[in-house]
Amino acid sequence: MKLVKFAAAFAAAAGMLAVGTTGASAESTLEIVKKRDILRCQVGKPSPGFYNLDAQGNWYGSDVAVCQAIAAAVLGDKNKLEIQSVSTQARFTAMANGESDVLSRTTTWTLLRDTQLGLDFTAINFYDGQGFMVPKGSGIKSALELKGATVCVLTGTTTELNLADYNRKNNLKIQAVTFEDNNVRDDTYLQGGCDAITNDKSGLASSKAKFANPGEHVILPETISKEPLGPVVRQNDSQWMDIVKWTVYALINAEELGINSKNVDEMRKNPPNPSVGRMLGAEGNLEKGLGLSKDWAYNVIKQVGNYGEVYEAYMGGGKLGIGIDRAGSPNALWTQGGLQYSPPFR
């Protein structure tokens, strides 16, 4: 797998070089997407909750829902969408070379990525953070008790670096065992090959849920990193950035205003208050600066749902959800003690 890394590094370097030439493009992404009449949205290899394939070959997941929302906002139809599954190594190159219009895949917003890759981060649609999972029988109650433990971790992500930082900070002498595939990592853990697994907590919850006996494992309370995840666009295209950003905010704001996919028609016909009317295009002209149609936000909510509906379906207790509690987590609305907060639609 060294080769993969080499090739990826090479490709990423070339991608950065190319930013200079592609940044100042003649056509804006919005024009390109409208002309093509299909949105190219980049996700990664299937990952529970965020982007998944079902047995019929259809994509689903919370990041896929963001792609669908953007397609609905820009093109009026959430199905005018081409999902591109790109490996982690090639993700930023595929943005730089114009292959993808937007990247919506568990990519952590960091200063370096925001400033040095020719990319702009837009809004946060999921707050994640790294944690540890241990067998209940081990009696470990806190990550600080992991002294000298072997910890299974996926390679090539910030997860590995966060673990090293945490290890150094608390002088835990943790031994990391790295894996390429989360199934192999989990099997190793289950067979006693390591004392704990570390991953983003959403990933841990999802791993735990697939074990034969989920009750025998606990996720430790510590969160050792901040992983704000959200869609990413190419730099220097502020109109496209606005569109992506406000599409995510439309999902969040709709939930705050109590608009969902079922009542949105009624809400548009008889807006209970001016905020709802403005957002759904019944009054005012919020769409003007975005360069979208008057009913863009209506299309998003009608076709995709609001943030809460999307969360319930893929992250929460829905049939395809991975069962992460939202109440009390950063992903709850700000009105309920969480961090999900949309600037006002006016």
């Binding site: 290899k45 909750g49 394939l53 047995a55 790109v86 090639a90 989990d186 395809l320």
Partner: peptide, 21 residues
């Protein structure tokens, strides 16, 4: 490079929520 050949489909099956793992 993200083409869903047989191996990639096999790996996708292990991530599909109803059949996770």
């Amino acid at each position: 490079i993200g083409l869903f050949d047989i191996l990639n489909m096999i790996q996708a099956a292990s991530q599909d929520v109803p059949w996770r793992g």
